[in-house]
Design a binder for these strands. Sequence first.
DNA 1: ATGAAAGCGCTAACAT
DNA 2: ATGTTAGCGCTTTCAT
Lengths: 341, 341
Amino acid sequence: MKTTIKDVAKKAGVSIATVSFVINNTKRVTPETKSRILKTIKSLNYHPSKSAVSLVSGKTGNIGFILTDDHFLRTEPFYTRIFLGTEFEARNAGYYILLTSINPEFSKSDPLPRFILNNSVDGIIVAGKIPQNLIERMAPYNLPTVFIDYIPSQNCCPLVLIDNVEGGLLATNHLIELGHKNIAFIGGDIEHPSLSDRLAGYKQALVNAKIPVKNNFITIDAKYPDRVNGYNSAKRLFSKNKNITAVFACNDAMAIGVLRYLKDNGYKIPKDVSVIGFDDVETDLMFSPPLTTIRVPKVEMGIEALKLMVNTLKNRKSLYNKILVPVELIVRESTANLYKK
Amino acid sequence: MKTTIKDVAKKAGVSIATVSFVINNTKRVTPETKSRILKTIKSLNYHPSKSAVSLVSGKTGNIGFILTDDHFLRTEPFYTRIFLGTEFEARNAGYYILLTSINPEFSKSDPLPRFILNNSVDGIIVAGKIPQNLIERMAPYNLPTVFIDYIPSQNCCPLVLIDNVEGGLLATNHLIELGHKNIAFIGGDIEHPSLSDRLAGYKQALVNAKIPVKNNFITIDAKYPDRVNGYNSAKRLFSKNKNITAVFACNDAMAIGVLRYLKDNGYKIPKDVSVIGFDDVETDLMFSPPLTTIRVPKVEMGIEALKLMVNTLKNRKSLYNKILVPVELIVRESTANLYKK
DNA sequence: ATGAAAGCGCTAACAT
DNA sequence: ATGTTAGCGCTTTCAT
């Protein structure tokens, strides 16, 4: 038999109400009774039944986590780290995360995540871009929602975002400071705010340095920012523009693809071309050479999102409704001074 | 207000018991009443409260999923695919998965996953190797447990395993049929049953073909079977043995490391050396060249594990207490005939 | 400061 | 075949 609040009450010689009061810190209880109850709870290894608490409180104690398959299964553990961050903070806060992945082509006829239909979550965390129709169909359920690394079009919800413009500036400035002027930008799906912001940072840095922005140095036609598309974008770029000396790839995955292309085609890195990525996914650090990049605090983003959610659920007005997590330049070996050769 | 069973009963003009009976198919109800109730449920978009059902049934409807951090964050989406399989089948079966990752160095003083302490799961699925002390400390809770891709020492629980010996045979036979005789095996952490079985298959294939097994062609000292260790193992192996013409790496990650080493050192693949992996993680398929490998049905493993769990929970005796999922040779471009050059 | 008791939404034994 | 009702384990109001 599982121990219940009754067992605790009986053993401690009090009523179940008093036990409940000390568990939830919801009413004054004399220190002696309190400590006696606490001791009993420990000795009995008592844990309140989650279903009973849920039933009476109307709260499930669960938070849904939604992301697209491709993000979840992506080679680089970017969103999995974010997920881990939410899980980690959920432990502290006493919540459970219910994860579901959805097809990026989620259509109007696809069923909503069942934890929404079943009322099994108190709130929802969305990581990365998800289809607009999902967002719209979720709305009627009135579940508090936090978006990570994505800005939905009707911006209403708390947001945890990367400071992408700053990162783009940081990356591009780094290359400029190394003496580069012919700096390419390799991006994908520019509808994703993260990537367009990185591009904005890139352009801003060039403008600041009075270097003309050339459109033929910018590729943004890749559908997904992955290794293969990085490779292909580099191929297109370098076969047309022989004078590029540095590349800012919009994420590490593409940067690795770029590196592969360049190495396959006899370029020395960083002697001939400097390459900087974004994200710091810490993949392939032993090869390539190790990638200079902009570090994104992934686990921390998950933690922040969960804190924001918990605040929302507890109706504490959060100080920030939008968190811009800071980024950091990590100089490794894929970038070098243009002149020192 | 959420709709409850009462709302349904009232609208359908029956008692809540009858509604419950049709929901759970637990007693005969006249077809007309049944269909009327079903219709009402649909029209009201009614979903039973999970906490209420849990409370009264003593079942949580949740299944815990445990794996180590390194497995979860590994570059190749191997265990994440397995997890996805369990999630997928959990949807069909009406369960939720509660995931927790643990430190591979999980120690006696680390707290157990809280879903165990809190009685928040009906059963546990463990993917990959986890520390013995965790297994032992979980035991007193008497939760049905299914192991995926790992055999705990006191073997008691249902198991979902890869047919690793068969895979080792398949891989090695493939190389033998291509004319190779000097075939190296690159493995890691041989305490993991999966890897030692792959080695066993390798040896068996050589014995079958009357090719002597040479210990200096076998490296099994890498702690983790990842890309970097694959690279390093290849370096050690090839610097001492110039006559190796084929490598069977115990997984794709190591195989990719091997490929990198060989390419970095001027070997042509598969002209000079054939390389075969194991797992089919479908990573880097555009590069490398595309890796010949043994496909492991990852999503299916998760599905099978969840089915096994559900059977156990429903006290249906499952036909199989140990499922060996079949593997398959996938010939791509990293292996070639030794003679046709 | 503590206890008694109602009730959260549901299942299942029992009554009709 | 369907309805009535007692709990499941807890929180919370209202008494004491």
